[in-house]
Amino acid sequence: MSNLVLVPGAWLGSWAWDEVVPTLREAGHAVHPLTLSGVADRQAVPAGRQTHVQDIVDEVERLDLRDVVLVGHSYSGIPVGQAAGRIGDRLVGVVFVDSNVPADGESFVSTWWEGPAKLEAVLAGNGGLWAPPTKDDYDGQGLTDEQIARIVGGTTPHPGASLADPALLVRPLADLPTTYIKCLLDGPEPSDDVAGLLTGEQWRLVEMDTGHWPMFSQPQELARILLDAAG
């Protein structure tokens, strides 16, 4: 049995994994969906530097979890990749779900967006929060109207401070036993940094013929991939 810690991407809470969790538990694994600080039901919790990494580490240590598989979707690949190095021999593997991955000293905004100035413009006038996508932003991602409505209805603004938080890697990503899931409707190829990591012996690529939110569009297929990663 593995302990799967499921970390949703920006704007989402633990509820995003609701359709994935039952299949994992039926297979005998313990599953721990996690809401990060400042989002969803934890909106009131402040989120600053390293807060989201610490959220993950604290969950593992609080529950004294062993044989841990960390799963990070989208933005959350950045804190998950850092937390994976910090939980030591508790870790058995990592799954990045169409996610960003951390680079030491770099942040989500510095590697994906146009840098801090762009972030400041996005957050200006919104109380330091990153507004969630609108309905139209989910077009072409393999989602039904009902699924889109569910996502839009459940998302909350994301704390802007976490987006500019420089990563601190205590273990190289290339050394982590990793499954990277590429969702093809969101782009046919992994980003250059991920492509480089996939050349290593510890990383493997799995493709899904769906969009960026497979926990909604193809939850059972995603669950099967996670089961394979959990062993």
Rank of each mutant, 00 (worst) to 15 (best):
75 Y>D: 05
41 D>S: 10
139 D>I: 00
59 E>N: 11
71 V>G: 09
105 G>T: 15
106 E>A: 15
44 A>C: 04
103 A>C: 06
133 P>D: 11
154 G>F: 08
74 S>T: 03
162 S>G: 11
141 Q>D: 08
107 S>W: 07
53 V>S: 01
52 H>E: 04
160 G>R: 06
157 P>I: 11
97 V>L: 12
64 D>C: 05
60 V>C: 13
50 Q>K: 05
145 D>A: 14
132 P>E: 09
126 N>E: 04
149 A>H: 06
134 T>C: 15
146 E>D: 14
147 Q>G: 02
85 G>Y: 00
52 H>R: 04
89 D>I: 12
130 W>N: 10
123 L>N: 10
141 Q>A: 10
152 V>D: 14
128 G>M: 11
157 P>S: 10
123 L>G: 05
85 G>W: 00
166 P>W: 03
133 P>G: 01
157 P>V: 14
110 S>D: 08
162 S>M: 14
64 D>T: 06
149 A>Q: 12
158 H>R: 01
147 Q>L: 02
62 R>W: 14
108 F>H: 11
119 L>T: 05
140 G>T: 06
163 L>D: 12
54 Q>G: 13
81 G>D: 07
99 S>V: 15
75 Y>M: 01
100 N>G: 08
162 S>A: 15
53 V>Y: 03
112 W>M: 09
121 A>N: 06
91 L>D: 07
68 V>F: 04
55 D>V: 11
82 Q>N: 12
57 V>T: 04
135 K>M: 15
63 L>D: 15
56 I>A: 00
144 T>I: 15
98 D>P: 04
49 R>S: 02
58 D>F: 06
131 A>F: 04
58 D>A: 14
95 V>N: 08
111 T>N: 01
107 S>E: 09
56 I>C: 07
70 L>Q: 05
111 T>Y: 08
115 G>H: 05
78 I>Y: 04
52 H>I: 10
95 V>D: 14
144 T>G: 10
57 V>S: 04
109 V>Q: 09
129 L>A: 00
93 G>L: 10
